[in-house]
């Protein structure tokens, strides 16, 4: 049994590497440059906040960490603490009851911060658009750098979005350090 598994691993072809959509990278690069965004390191930590989702996006977000998608191979990881995070990843609508919590999470993060809206609800409210209980999508609370549409977006789509962010970040100007 074990030998069979080992043999299979020798024969198996590695999966094609995932790549970010080049158009998305170019557009993002332009936006980050225009906003004067400073370059972050290469290994980025993500703080996820569900601001009013149906928990579908969370399922797919969690799946990015499984052994098939293996998010950490790209240097990306989820962190519980906003203090350690470079990316604020929002799922769900801007729920009225979550506005304060999202604002406080953003304030707890050290600048510069990249903000991603994942899923149709975070993009513009999705099917819940127009509900009096919500303020809209993530852009009703924060300035959003990248959106990943889908209801919910598949793990591969989420990873491609994050890769676009990594690539665009790579060409952002390095922060100017003032000598002490």
């Amino acid at each position: 049994m074990v030998w069979k598994t080992i043999a299979r691993h020798f024969i198996a072809q590695p999966a094609a590497p995932r790549k970010a959509n080049s158009a998305a990278v170019a557009a993002l690069r332009q936006r980050l440059t225009a906003a004067g965004h400073e370059k972050l390191g290469r290994s980025l930590a993500i703080r996820h906040v569900a601001a009013g989702s149906c928990n579908g996006c969370e399922l797919e977000l969690r799946a990015t960490q499984n052994l098939i998608y293996d998010l950490t191979q790209y240097g990306l990881s989820f962190t519980p603490s906003p203090r350690h995070a470079d990316i604020l990843l929002i799922t769900g609508v801007a729920g009225g009851n979550m506005l304060t919590a999202v604002r406080e999470a953003r304030e707890a993060m050290p600048d510069p911060v990249l903000v991603i809206a994942v899923g149709d609800c975070a993009v513009d409210g999705g099917v819940f658009k127009g509900s009096p209980a919500i303020a809209g999508g993530a852009d009703a609370m924060l300035q959003v750098d990248l959106v990943v549409a889908g209801c919910p977006p598949a793990p591969a789509q989420i990873i491609e979005g994050l890769l676009a962010l990594l690539e665009a970040n790579d060409t952002a100007p390095r922060p100017v350090r003032v000598p002490r």
Partner: peptide
């Protein structure tokens, strides 16, 4: 905290249209 006003959105719609909201009450 994840209150989205789903019940209110379902009212006033046909069953076919409202099925989209029922499908998003709990995604799992």
């Amino acid at each position: 905290y994840s209150h989205k006003g789903t019940l209110g959105l379902i009212r006033g719609k046909s069953p076919r249209l409202a099925a989209r909201f029922a499908a998003r009450v709990s995604g799992d």
